[in-house]
Amino acid sequence: MTAPALEARSLTRRFRDNVAADDVTFQVDFGEVVGLLGANGAGKTTTIRILAGLLPPTSGQAFLLGSPPSRASRRRLGYVPQGLGLYGDLTVRENLAFAASAFGVEPATLIDPLAGASDRIVSNLPLGLQRQLSFVTALQHDPEVLILDEPTSGVGALAAARLWDRIRDESDKGVGVLVSTHSMQEARQCDRLLLMFDGRIVGRGTESDIVAGMTTVEVAADSWSDAFSVLANDGLLVTLNGTKARVIDLAPADVEAKLREHGIEADVQVVPSTIDERMASLSIRAPAWKEDGSLSRVFPTPAS
């Protein structure tokens, strides 16, 4: 049986009394794109750094291409860190040449728009181009595994779409991809999702698997702005979907009651939550769970 491209077995990492990754278990197979989803501080980067061999776990095991991360296995890894890992004082061409030389391969052939900027100093390039360069640099030695830490953070929609095309191309070639993100749009591009919260994996599967069973109250009112203001001013977590307000963590009857108090008639419906709402819900409930230690009971980790 072929070992998975990446595997985390009960990974835990503590920084003093803070548990950044808590009993994290999952695997990424060849040819699939797995999204590691979570808000800032959820433990995504810590998990990624352990899998890349940049950070030792306090306990548990990380496997990269079937063995603990080593110089040999990292030769087959393409890694795009959140900070890009580019030399700002070097040109595009020089950055590529350095990485290619380190991996013992020929520098990648650039295509536009990077080709047109090949002699420009990297720190003078727009962030979108820098991210593309970081991506090309990570791919030029034909890695079998890609680890991408928020690869489209801060780039425009077009550049992000181009990067995702490349990610899909790589996975189609059989490369296993682990990509961390807090963007729901990006999450939808992944074959499988892992939702992290407070260092733990609290949901896994497709988007619908992760929000399974969780509902949101959707409010359609004649004056949607009044309805939104009333609910938001009441301290509720409200979002807008077109002209409909969406309220999480409150029963439909309670929502109706609050609106009625202010003389607002509305059509209130219970609809499936989105991943965004699932994450928001986690954040709202977190303090209470942490106090009574019941996080595992509220969100038992499903079997992989």
């Binding site: 061999g53 110089r71 040999a72 890694y79 890992g85």
Partner: peptide, 14 residues
């Protein structure tokens, strides 16, 4: 500071 040390660490360099 630039995060390139991390990049060096994942390269096959001793």
């Amino acid at each position: 500071e630039n995060g390139t040390l991390e990049q060096l660490a994942v390269m096959p360099l001793s």
